[in-house]
Structures are given as structure tokens and as C-alpha cells.
Design a protein around this nucleic acid. Structure first.
Lengths: 64, 64
DNA sequence: TTATAATGTAATATATAATTAACATTTTGT
DNA sequence: ACAAAATGTTAATTATATATTACATTATAA
């Protein structure tokens, strides 16, 4: 699940720091979201999705 | 945007309090999210979506 | 109308997301 | 191998989502 975000980021040719800057977050926050089971805010999720050209479902949804 | 959640909830025949209980939140939190006065956590968004039979995009995504 | 359920809303308290700073480790390029 | 960039990770602090309590207002049904 986390790797979907990392994959989308790398496909865009962005570092964690670059993505963080573009969504007004810190590198550490991006790293934690990509890695462990962080629980980010909806607004941050939306900003990340917009920046990576994906939707919320693309990055954060798991079919149950 | 906020009304999408309210609409989905009413379609399911649930009150704010009932939905809140099922997603381990409070009635007030649900009410504020419906009024889009809050920035809920991803986990809560996912719980709400699952409970209402919708996806994240269905409830929280706006095409930009 | 009257009672009751549902929702709105505000104050304070608590849990945790997110920041900041710092240093360690890994990766990448030369 | 070496240096630089990228990422990992931890501790302390700040910002804010969420809970709790309480009361007000609006809907719904008898």
C-alpha cells in the first residue's frame, strides 16, 4: 500500500524532499507515509494525489 | 462536497450517531466532516467509506 | 401542540499528526 | 573507493484532529 505512493513519486521523478515541498509537508512526513502505517490527514492525501497525478483511490484505497 | 457524505449516509438510513458508532468516532466529528469544517484522518475517511459502501474518491475526491 | 429524536454548536481536554533539528544509513554517480 | 545526495530514524516540540460534556436548535412523529 505504501509502495503505491513511492512508486507514483518515483515515476514522476521526484525525491521525497521535492514532493514534500510541493505539498507543504516535510520530507520526514512523506517518508513516514510511504513507509510505516502513518495516518495522514485527508488534505495532505489530496495534495499528494494531485501532485502525483493520481486519485485518492489510486494511492490510498484497498478493496476490502 | 460535504453533502456527498450526508447523502450516502441518508441513503443507508443511518443517523450521524449511528454512523459515528460504526466507525468509532463521535457524532460531533461526523457532523463536522459533513459540513466540511474538518480535515479528517485518512483512517477515518476509509472507515466511513467502507461503512457507506463507497470509495474514497466517491466521497472525498473532487476533480481538479 | 407536545414530546422526542436528530442535529448544531461551543468549551475544554486529550491523542496524535506534523514539524524541527540532528545524526545515521543507504543509494547514486564519478 | 570516495563524495554527495537521498532516505532512514529518533527525540522534542507544536499544531490540530478527535473526544467529552453540555446545552441549543431543528426535525419528526404521536
Amino acid at each position: 500500500m505504501a509502495n503505491k505512493i513511492k512508486l507514483a513519486r518515483v515515476e514522476k521523478g521526484l525525491t521525497q524532499a521535492q514532493l514534500a515541498q510541493r505539498v507543504n509537508a516535510t520530507r520526514q512526513t512523506i517518508g513516514l507515509i510511504e513507509k510505516s502505517k502513518y495516518n495522514p490527514s485527508l488534505n495532505l492525501c489530496i495534495a499528494i494525489a494531485n501532485e502525483l497525478g493520481k486519485s485518492l483511490d489510486d494511492l490510498f484505497w484497498e478493496e476490502s
